[in-house]
Write a protein that binds this DNA or RNA. Structure first.
Length: 449
RNA sequence: GGUCCGGUGGCAGAAUGGUGAUGCAGCGGACUGCAAAUCCGCGAAUGUGGGUUCGAUUCCCGCCCGGACCUCCA
């Protein structure tokens, strides 16, 4: 069995993955801040985590996958006010929508999905310990982490504290001792969510929740922490600092995994550019597996440019794979083809997985049922090819299949009578409705265009 | 301005110190009443200038271009 090698953001190298406890691999990924529908950039991070966890589950008997939900945040407060709705209603609805969207894309649920607001006690406990240890201080109702109390601050993201100061483009709050100090706890206005604390009624800063929840569910040291590359600094740097200062005997995350950003039509996705796409926007006219496959078409550390043409190509690739599957049932069991596993173990090289799947499809189309089974198993491994070919080719066709069968019978009669004008008219009529007819030795079948 | 990542055929996208996968698109052919699918074949790439080396796309340096981040916030 090949060994799993993963890129580690801290060392910026691909290194062998060695679990702390092979009997229970522990993984934490930063989940969503729930104030709006998931967009396709969010989705890329979720798919990266999903593939990683699938590979880990294949290699190890038990994996504990924790993905948090940030449900206390200034963006949430602002959105709730904008919408004129209670914060609880906004977060509950957004979480429900998020779960629906991820399920549609074939994402395995995390084992634990902790919410920040359910772990305020753990956060307060950590903050108290940080103050006691001289790593945090209170100033004007805020509690701040003192970055100069952690010698390794900046090591994860590869920045020196001097670099950080040089480029600071945000006004430094006057109560900070050092410009790099960040908020652990801050006062909350009466109309905003808040919890009583030794420092007054307040709410947590952004980073402390992940430190508190990962500790609660995974311990002082765990295997992998991941998220989008935009989280590397400051979010993960700060999490690491807090956690290591609070639990000096732990290593926090042993291994850091970050996925590159997604662009839309070559540009950063933003509402002002008009290229902001939610998962739902895409799924309105695209099969979910096509969206998933598109995200797997690039290795997770490469910037991925999302385009409609790319989406169409992903759909076409799945057409080919579904043809190659033939009669192999969706739940067919078999060994995962070795080249596929080798590609996954090579830093989750999903493009190479797809190349291997094309090779399997070639053999399957040539009549090799073992290869067709291998394709099924490989597809299941990466969360695609979960349907029957009929379902894939006919889903979304807004038609009455009995009527189509009748037209196919009419056309067959016309062809027998060598009335090709009539036969072609039927083909054209169905084409108008988005139906493609395919003649073969075995008869005529139809699919959606 | 600072730190980091990247630039491979028309497009997407792997890999590699020794003749550069895979898919899409294109072209030619087989098959087909037509079409689709499938099959066979063809053309097509390492941003740029140096350096190291017998040999560089791969390693090093400069330049150009693109991207992420630069601390609670857009």
């Amino acid at each position: 069995m090949p060994h799993l090698n993963l890129h580690d953001s801290r060392s910026r190298k691909i290194v062998p993955f060695v679990p702390l406890d092979p009997g229970n691999v522990r993984v934490y990924f930063c989940g969503p801040t729930v104030y709006d529908l998931a967009h396709i950039g969010n989705l890329r991070a979720m798919v990266t985590a999903d593939i990683l966890v699938r590979v880990l589950r294949h290699l190890y008997p038990r994996v504990t996958y924790v993905r948090n939900i940030t449900d206390v945040d200034d963006k949430i407060n602002a959105r709730a006010r904008e919408n004129g709705e209670p914060i609880d209603a906004l977060t509950a609805r957004t979480i429900r929508d998020f779960h629906e969207d991820l399920a549609a894309i074939g994402m395995l649920p995390p084992d634990v999905e902790p919410r920040a607001t359910h772990h305020i006690g753990e956060m307060l406990d950590m903050i108290g310990r940080l103050i006691a240890g001289g790593h945090a201080y209170e100033a004007q109702g805020h509690v701040l982490f003192a970055v100069d109390s952690f010698a390794a601050y900046g090591a994860l993201s590869g920045r020196s504290p001097d670099d950080l100061l040089a480029g600071a483009r945000v006004e430094i709050a006057p109560y900070k001792r050092e410009a790099g100090d960040f908020v652990l706890w801050k006062p909350s206005e009466p109309d905003l969510p808040g919890w009583e604390s030794p420092w007054g009624r307040g709410r947590p800063g952004w980073h402390i929740e992940c430190s508190a929840m990962s500790h609660r569910y995974l311990g002082e040291s765990f295997d992998i922490h991941g998220g989008g590359s935009d989280l590397l600094f400051p979010h993960h740097e700060n999490e690491l600092a807090q956690s290591q200062c609070c639990f000096p005997h732990g290593r926090f995350a042993n291994h850091w995994l970050h996925n590159a950003m997604l662009l839309v039509d070559g540009e950063k996705m933003s509402k002002s550019l008009g290229n902001f796409l939610t998962v739902r926007d895409v799924l309105r006219d695209t099969p979910a597996e096509a969206l998933r496959l598109l995200l797997l078409h690039a290795q997770y550390r490469s910037v991925l440019n999302f385009t409609r043409a790319g989406l169409a190509e992903a759909k076409q690739t799945l057409d080919r794979f579904y043809r190659a599957l033939g009669d192999v049932p969706a739940d067919m069991q078999g060994p995962l083809p070795e080249p596929v596993l080798a590609a996954l173990c090579d830093d989750l090289n999903t493009p190479r997985v797809l190349a291997e799947m094309h090779a399997l499809a070639d053999r399957a189309l040539a009549g090799d049922t073992g290869a067709a089974t291998g394709l099924r198993v490989a597809g299941r491994m990466i969360g695609v090819l979960q349907q029957t070919p009929d379902d894939w080719f006919r889903a979304g066709a807004d038609v009455d299949s009995a009527a189509i069968d009748a037209l196919i019978a009419d056309r067959l009669a016309a062809r027998k009578a060598r009335d090709f004008a009539r036969a072609d008219a039927i083909r054209a009529e169905l084409a108008e409705r988005g139906i493609v007819l395919e003649d073969s030795a075995a008869g005529t079948t139809w699919r959606r265009a």
